[in-house]
Simulated assay, not measured.
Amino acid sequence: MGIPILAGPGTIATAMNFAAQSTIGEISRVLIAFAAMCCLTFIAFIGGQWLALYLGQNAIKVISRLMGLILAVIGVQMLIEGIRGAIAG
Rank of each mutant, 00 (worst) to 15 (best):
Q77C: 06
T41P: 03
F42V: 04
G56L: 12
L71C: 01
P9W: 09
G56R: 11
E26M: 08
Q21C: 01
F34G: 06
A59E: 08
I43P: 03
Y54H: 14
L71I: 07
I63D: 00
I83C: 03
I24G: 12
K61R: 08
L31A: 09
I43V: 11
T14Q: 13
G2S: 05
I46R: 12
E81V: 08
G10C: 09
A59D: 05
I83G: 03
Q21V: 01
A13S: 02
G47K: 10
A13Y: 01
L6H: 05
N17A: 15
I32M: 08
V76C: 06
A20Y: 03
Q57L: 14
T11Y: 11
G68A: 05
P9H: 07
K61E: 02
T14Y: 11
L55A: 15
I83R: 00
L66R: 07
G47L: 09
A7H: 08
N58K: 09
Q21S: 12
I24T: 15
I3Q: 00
I46D: 00
I74Y: 07
S28A: 11
S28H: 05
T23G: 08
L31M: 13
A33L: 09
V73M: 12
L55Y: 13
M37Q: 12
N17E: 04
I5P: 02
A19G: 04
L53P: 00
I80G: 00
C39T: 04
Q49E: 10
A7P: 01
L31D: 03
G85I: 03
V30E: 00
M1C: 10
R29A: 14
I60W: 06
Y54R: 15
I60V: 12
G2I: 02
L66A: 07
L40I: 12
L40M: 14
L79Y: 02
I87W: 06
V76Q: 01
A44Q: 02
T11L: 15
G25Q: 03
V30M: 09
I60M: 15
A52F: 04
